[in-house]
Design a protein around this nucleic acid. Structure first.
Lengths: 129, 129
DNA sequence: TCAAAACATAACGTTTACGTCATGTTCATC
DNA sequence: GATGAACATGACGTAAACGTTATGTTTTGA
């Protein structure tokens, strides 16, 4: 029994604006909510999860365009051997990219720590005088 | 003896366009190259490092605006106790943010791997038949 | 020294990811 | 059944980060 909701509730619970939801629909990042004859769109919990996943991917620096493929993988389970193979290849590529980012971010962290160390030692010296 | 270079070489070696360099100067992210009477700007190896650092920070998802402070810390060593304290506080904040990102990225990595696992098991089953 | 390549500055154009009206329709409820 | 809140659709606006002419000046190499 899916909790039918309209765009207002969906957007509020996802922490985005209605405009954002419609924007994602318009560029094919979200499927448009099902209509009910009269023109209004209705959404499910899955729509909500999808919005949250998009938000998470954004934080990782992906553009809406780059996200499209990945989001598909999360919410459409591909049928057919061919599309499953494609999905697997895509996922492996994304794993590699993620590892690359993790490594760069780790290096950046090291640099920050080193700078912090410099400053801390400078202050320690001063206090010891 | 600093290898004086002009904007063409600088941009080429940094892998960006001249327009990009000028843009960074115009928003105060890079100091404008020193002029030599006639109007032309001259740059040093430090300018190059700075451009590369900016590029690195961009990959980590920082906006040019957010970058400004961090880049300062790398290339201007703050004089005076007050500014040193401020720098230290800033660096610690950036360290915390970086750790947060690292954790999120790690979680994302896990999700990707899990998805890959699903697909791989599916293929194994099929072959075993 | 003189033409071609490189540079400076200004101004308008472009893409991404929405924000912000404006206007008409549908829902909920009194 | 009226009316205020919520929704649909369209169109124009905006900020960031440059791209792309256009025009005039400076450097460089034959």
């Amino acid at each position: 029994m899916d909790k039918r909701m309209r765009i207002g509730e969906l957007a509020r619970r996802a922490g985005v604006t209605q405009r954002t939801v419609r924007h994602y629909e318009s560029i094919g990042l979200m499927p448009p909510g099902e209509r009910e004859g009269t023109g209004q769109h209705y959404y499910t919990e899955e729509s909500l999860e999808r919005l949250r996943k998009i938000d998470q991917l954004k934080k990782l620096g992906l553009s809406l365009d780059e996200m499209r493929e990945v989001v598909q993988l999360y919410f459409i389970d591909p049928s057919g051997v061919q599309s499953k193979r494609k999905a697997l290849a895509l996922l492996r590529q994304h794993l590699a990219e993620t590892d690359q980012k993790l490594s760069e971010l780790g290096q950046f962290r090291g640099e920050i720590q080193s700078l912090i160390g410099h400053f801390e030692r400078w202050f320690e010296k001063r206090e010891g005088e």
